[in-house]
């Protein structure tokens, strides 16, 4: 039983210059206790998809097609007031830069308490206890002292822990994490990941993890969707997609980064470049948007966008090379 279902989601951006499709026909669902990774370069629409799920799209961007359902209830046509009750309660989000997403003029304890006041009927005393418990639950030892600290007094890792405590305050069904460790050091990243894994095991929260790092995907996620220029390129379980990537873009994303190898027999293979850059969305024509950068590009790739098709059970790819088989 999936907790969150995204069905044929399209997000359009309208401006004086015209209109652009930022997210084009994206579908996926996610089970409790599982982690789904959304992967792609910047500008591929992964953050827009996340913001659409929270109904927090920036001005000018709107959901034009598709349905998002949380435990069977549609979020897409919910009035804003009811959506506010869902945000921070059954669905919450953490961001890349925990400094800018915390309010600098309130203590972190106060900010966690605010979430509880909004979404629960707890009294003052209960809230105070719950705040302390939450701060302890994200691995901060001196909770009493830390709760009265202001964001700038804490390190980046600490702040991200506080963001996680805030996001988990009302035991959400879904946690959306947008590049949660990109701004952090590797050892702190390892701490945050082990914290997220522990919390997930305890609360069965479904996690949507937005990242560009295949290492993070391998470490944290069960399923993966790869997006390119707003469209779905590939979808499947992390194990299959990373070991047998079907889309040339997925393969490119894996091979373009020098991955750390330990041991005495290290391969000295060069990293392969994906040439060029993501095309501007307004210039994309009818064909596959990756065709201009793809080594396997043929005539039909330029002519039409391939449909999503099955490579093997629960592994789909949108690439002409897999259309016949």
């Amino acid at each position: 039983m999936s907790v969150l279902k995204v069905d044929h989601l399209c997000v359009d951006y309208r401006s004086r210059a015209g209109h652009i499709r930022l997210v084009d026909d994206i579908s996926f669902d996610i089970q409790p206790n599982k982690t789904l990774a959304i992967v792609g370069e910047s500008g591929c629409g992964k953050s827009m998809t996340a913001l659409a799920m929270m109904r927090l799209l920036p001005d000018g961007a709107t959901i034009t097609k598709g349905v998002i359902t949380l435990e069977g209830d549609s979020l897409t046509d919910l009035p804003e007031a009811q959506m506010r009750d869902i945000r921070g309660a059954s669905m919450s989000m953490i961001f890349q830069e925990p400094m800018t997403s915390l309010n600098p003029v309130f203590s972190v304890g106060e900010q966690i308490a605010e979430v509880l006041r909004l979404h629960t009927d707890l009294d003052k005393q209960q809230i105070r206890e719950k705040v302390q418990a939450l701060i302890r639950s994200v691995g901060i030892s001196d909770a009493g002292q830390r709760s009265s600290a202001y964001p700038h007094e804490l390190s980046g890792g600490m702040r991200q822990r506080i963001m996680i405590a805030m996001a988990l305050a009302c035991s959400p069904k879904v946690l959306i994490a947008d590049e949660p460790t990109t701004a952090l050091d590797v050892t702190v990243q390892a701490q945050i990941f082990s914290l997220l894994r522990d919390l997930q095991a305890r609360t069965s929260t479904a996690i949507v993890l937005i990242t560009h790092d295949m290492g993070v995907v391998a470490e944290m996620a069960d399923d993966i969707i790869v997006m390119y220029a707003g469209r779905l390129a590939e979808r499947g379980s992390v194990e299959t997609v990373l070991s047998r990537p079907a889309h040339p873009y997925t393969r490119g994303l894996i091979d373009c980064v020098p991955h750390l190898q330990l041991g005495s027999n290290i391969s000295h293979k060069s990293v392969t470049e994906i040439p060029g850059v993501v095309p501007a969305l307004e210039t994309i024509g009818a064909g596959c948007p990756f065709a201009s950068r793809c080594g396997l590009s043929e005539e039909r790739c330029e002519a039409a966008m391939p449909e999503l098709s099955e490579v093997r059970p629960s592994h789909q790819v949108a690439c002409w090379n897999y259309q016949e088989t």
Partner: peptide, 10 residues
């Protein structure tokens, strides 16, 4: 090539 494109655009 996309690289070319991004230049011709501007």
């Amino acid at each position: 090539m996309a690289a070319v494109e991004s230049v011709t655009r501007s």
